[in-house]
């Protein structure tokens, strides 16, 4: 039996952690814990990227890993924490579909993603190709999380987590995107969070709540 080198095994381990964290985020009720989970996901991502960089000698990936660490483990969670403190929202939240059903749908999505990733993995020549399925599953699960949440902040966290999944997919399929693109995306995410933060205040000022069901009134007609 062909034994994988240690770093490849580690990558697989971190990929599994990433997937696990995605599921955890899907099921998490409290917003503060959600941010912690997001930070943990960022940490796993940074670690796995660094290991890929170490194992394959792709030095530019060190930069990516560092960027991820700074941005997604420290900066974004800090911004989000501050937002929550300022908005004074530390509540539990309900969801549209109950947790077991959401989990089941998540499992179906994971199966679908793995199924989808098989032909692509065979084409890719990287050591990390087996993790592509997991990366896609992370994207899907984050998307599902955005769909099932009704409050504004968890939706933004879902969006950020989706970006994590995309980043991981890029690393596992082609050893990362060009540095310029990566920097661009990082900046986009940062600016996006800042703008959304402003929106939070605006929404709350308008509706006295961050519940997105108030936005339903904005539709035309009736």
């Amino acid at each position: 039996m062909n034994v994988l080198p240690l770093y490849a095994q580690l990558i697989n381990l971190f990929a599994a952690i990433l997937l696990l964290l995605s599921f955890a985020m899907l099921a998490q009720r409290r917003v503060l814990s959600l941010i912690d989970l997001f930070a943990a996901q960022g940490l796993a991502l940074a670690a796995s990227t660094a290991i890929v960089a170490f194992g394959t000698g792709q030095h530019h990936l060190y930069w990516s890993a560092g960027l991820t660490l700074v941005l997604k483990v420290f900066l974004l969670p800090w911004i989000l924490y501050r937002l929550i403190r300022q908005l004074d929202v530390k509540w539990d939240f309900e969801r549209l579909i109950n947790v077991p059903t959401t989990m089941l749908i998540g499992i179906v999505l994971v199966v679908f993603s793995f199924n989808l990733a098989v032909p692509i993995s065979q084409l890719a020549s990287t050591v990390t190709r087996s993790t592509l399925g997991i990366a896609m599953a992370c994207v899907m699960l984050s998307f599902l999380m955005m769909i099932t949440r009704r409050k504004a902040i968890p939706q933004v966290i879902g969006f950020l987590s989706m970006e994590n999944g995309l980043f991981f997919a890029a690393t596992s399929a082609t050893y990362g995107m060009p540095m310029v693109v990566e920097l661009g995306i990082a900046l986009d995410v940062l600016v996006g969070v800042l703008i959304l933060g402003v929106f939070f205040f605006q929404i709350r000022e308008q509706f006295d709540s961050l519940d997105l069901k108030h936005l339903e009134k904005l539709k035309e007609g009736e």
């Binding site: 998307f143 599902l144 939706q155 069901k213 936005l215 009134k217 904005l218 539709k219 007609g221």
Partner: peptide, 17 residues
């Protein structure tokens, strides 16, 4: 076309999903 417009963000997200 207007029937598609529900007003709920989660529904719109479901469309793209």
């Amino acid at each position: 076309v207007g029937l598609i417009q529900q007003g709920r963000i989660s529904v719109y997200l479901t469309y793209s999903f």
